[in-house]
């Protein structure tokens, strides 16, 4: 205790002695030089950052999100009318089909001698609407090439295996959905030889809007099922309906043909009108089906 107080007094004495002689100061020149350095230093107050610049990233992100949401909310079905445009759909459908069967697209345009179109790469998962196009085209081919309705020649996409079974399944699907085929999640298929042929080209050009709409629906079919909800049912023309019916007759699927004929008669009474351009064809097919339906 005594030692500490003695040390403290010694420290205080030393401090007094030190302070009494601690008088050295830098020269005026040195002071001026250092102060001049401070004056010359380019220290500026940080600029006030504006609100927009300070929060530019959050604001731009929020604006982008708002824009996208607004577009989606204001135009929920903006794609549908566009896709329904014939000018948009037809090439797209053709491209889609062409992409699926590149080998067939390059096949010769002339029909094989045996009447069976050479089809390579046709998938068994043909869709209804694609089928309708194919059927329509095949009908045109039949008409233009003067082929008989009973011949086995068909430009129907025929897989190399189980052609008849596949055709049957397709026509069953057609019959079940005739007039208003509900789109199903089948992949798009093509009728390659038809697409290659002139008849197909003319068919595509002359195709009615309903067929085009069906083709568009076919194109959308490749989308996830969720997008199919709420889509309009495809409309098939009288001519297409009769073409389906004619195919059933030509393949001698009389039961399906009968069901389809009944449905056509219900939904298309105008075909019974004699002035209707397809009346003769309808009557001819009806007579054929009636002849085979009677025991």
């Amino acid at each position: 205790m005594t030692q500490n107080s003695q040390d403290d007094s010694v420290d205080k004495a030393l401090q007094l002695l030190y302070r009494s002689q601690a008088t050295e100061q830098p020269s005026e020149a040195l002071d001026s030089h250092i102060l001049a350095m401070a004056q010359a230093s380019k220290i500026h107050a940080p600029k006030q950052v504006s609100f927009w610049r300070q929060y530019r990233w959050p604001l731009s992100s929020a604006a982008s999100v708002l824009l996208v949401v607004s577009i989606l909310l204001l135009n929920p079905t903006s794609q549908d009318p566009l896709l329904m445009e014939p000018a948009f759909i037809a090439p797209q459908a053709l491209e889609s089909q062409a992409a699926r069967a590149p080998r067939v697209m390059s096949a010769p345009m002339a029909a094989p001698e045996n009447g069976e179109p050479e089809i390579v790469g046709s998938t068994a998962a043909d869709s209804n609407v694609g089928e309708s196009i194919a059927s329509d085209a095949s009908a045109n081919l039949v008409e233009t090439s003067k082929m008989t309705a009973t011949s086995q020649v068909s430009t129907e996409p025929a897989s190399t295996v189980n052609d008849s079974n596949e055709t049957t399944q397709r026509h069953k699907a057609l019959v079940s959905t005739e007039g208003a085929p509900i789109l199903q999640g089948k992949s798009v298929s093509s009728s390659p030889t038809i697409l290659d042929s002139k008849a197909d080209a003319s068919n595509v050009k002359d195709s009615e809007p309903s067929a085009v709409a069906a083709s568009a629906a076919e194109t959308r079919e490749a989308q996830p099922p969720a997008t199919l909800k709420g889509q309009a049912k495809a409309v098939i023309s009288d001519k297409q309906a009769l073409n389906h019916l004619q195919q059933l007759v030509s393949t001698e699927q009389w039961s399906e043909a009968m069901v389809l004929l009944q449905r056509i008669n219900q939904q298309r009474p105008q075909l019974a009108d004699k002035t209707h351009p397809l009346h003769q064809k309808w009557r001819h097919l009806s007579q054929q089906i009636d002849a085979h339906s009677q025991p």
Partner: peptide, 20 residues
């Protein structure tokens, strides 16, 4: 923030001790 006078005050306050 750009006020050299503030530096001068600091300098005058501590120049002697630092110099020694």
């Amino acid at each position: 923030n750009g006020d050299p006078r503030a530096f001068e005050l600091l300098y005058q306050k501590y120049k002697g001790g630092l110099y020694r």
